[in-house]
Amino acid sequence: MSATPSKGDLRTAALARRDALGDRERAAAAEAIARRGLPLAIKAGAAVAGYSPIRNEVDPVPLMQTLAAKGARLALPVVPARGKSLIFRAWSPNDRLMLGPLGILEPSPAAAELVPDIVLVPLAAFDRAGHRIGYGAGHYDFTLAHLHRRKTLAIGLAFAAQEIPAVPAAAHDVMLDLVLTENETIDFRSV
């Protein structure tokens, strides 16, 4: 009988599958997600937080631009410190970004803080129950735990290749409301 794989093992395998995708496949996936959009109405002025893609993540910018064209205000996260909630600052595609302390591009400290109505969440792996595996630092779990209290939607962006049969979820892990891949929209809100 084999042992159940750890989150670390599942993360490594899912990231290897993601990294095996070519640049064209990744760009086509981001465009497919943007064309399909979200399965819900976006109220004018709603704040949508994306992320600056790293490590071959799905690029959220095409989807963010689609949502901005429908009246959404855009934001990107800023990592203040380990164990602290992410801060979301206003952003538009023409804004210049700065390299943050973790080497991730972030908006200027002068950009206005926004509390998002929707957070587009990067991930390493996901399952059909709405669980995700991140990179292990807990930034999104900590942040989403606070934002869920105000009914902020958490929407994972992933390539279909990142799906796994089951995430070994812990009590502190926050479930996603939806996952968007290049192939489908998976809605966990009624699960």
Rank of each mutant, 00 (worst) to 15 (best):
H172P: 06
A154D: 04
V167Q: 06
I155L: 09
P165H: 11
V174G: 01
L180W: 03
L180I: 08
P165T: 02
L157K: 10
I164F: 05
A158E: 05
G156I: 08
K151G: 00
L180P: 01
L176K: 11
P165D: 10
T181K: 07
V174M: 12
Q162P: 04
L176D: 03
A160T: 15
L157I: 12
A154T: 11
A160C: 06
Q162A: 09
I155Y: 02
K151N: 13
A171P: 08
D173P: 13
L153H: 01
T152G: 02
D177H: 14
G156H: 07
N183D: 13
L176Q: 03
D173V: 08
A161K: 04
A161D: 05
N183A: 14
F159C: 07
F159L: 02
V167T: 11
I164P: 02
L178G: 02
M175N: 12
L178R: 10
A161R: 09
A161I: 11
L157M: 13
A154S: 14
Q162E: 11
L178N: 00
I164M: 09
F159W: 08
N183T: 14
A158R: 04
G156R: 01
A170D: 14
L153N: 00
L153G: 04
F159S: 04
A166M: 08
A171D: 11
T181A: 10
I155V: 14
A160V: 11
E182F: 00
D177C: 11
A170P: 05
A154Y: 08
A158V: 09
T181F: 13
M175K: 15
H172S: 14
L180V: 07
P165W: 08
A169I: 06
I155Q: 02
L176A: 06
V179K: 04
A169V: 12
D173N: 12
G156M: 03
V167W: 04
A160N: 12
I164T: 12
T152I: 00
D173E: 12
A161W: 00
A166K: 14
L180A: 10
T152H: 02
V167I: 15
V174C: 07
P168Q: 04
D173S: 10
A170N: 14
E182Y: 00
A158K: 06
P165L: 10
D177V: 05
P168F: 01
M175L: 15
E163Y: 02
A170T: 12
E182P: 00
A171M: 08
P165E: 06
P165R: 10
M175G: 15
P168H: 05
D177E: 05
A171Q: 14
A160Y: 04
A160E: 15
A171G: 00
L180C: 11
L157R: 11
V167Y: 12
V167A: 01
V167P: 01
K151C: 08
K151Y: 05
L157P: 00
H172C: 12
G156L: 02
V174T: 07
A170Y: 14
V174K: 05
L176N: 02
A171W: 04
K151V: 00
V167R: 03
P165G: 10
A171F: 10
